[in-house]
């Protein structure tokens, strides 16, 4: 249960932050607008990850997807570097 809760709260936050930031980084639109949309929608994504993390019975799958998304998106961002 602890692993699941940590994955949901911390992993979910990392995955949400990473995925919306990546979307904001590569979206073909104005940088400022893309950034703000990503910030606005981030909490919906985070809430989605939390709910799914507690809903999905297989913990391994939850951990793999959430930490996978987090690491992959943050890794991509790290390689890309800031745009401006």
């Amino acid at each position: 249960m602890t692993a699941r809760a940590v994955t949901a709260m911390i992993g979910g936050y990392a995955a949400a932050a990473g995925s919306v930031s990546l979307a904001a980084r590569i979206a073909p639109m104005d940088r400022a607008e893309a950034t703000i949309w990503a910030m606005i929608l981030s909490f919906l994504v985070y809430a989605g990850f939390i709910l799914w993390a507690f809903h999905e019975p297989r913990l391994a799958r939850v951990a793999a997807v959430i930490w996978g998304v987090a690491i992959a998106s943050i890794g991509c961002l790290w390689l890309l570097g800031p745009a401006l």
Partner: peptide, 26 residues
Amino acid sequence: ITLVAMYMPWPVVANYKDMSTFETAV
């Protein structure tokens, strides 16, 4: 959203070299 700059600054980090560049743009 009122505290989004504190809770979720990462889209800014991904796009701008610092927060003030973003604030100037907006």
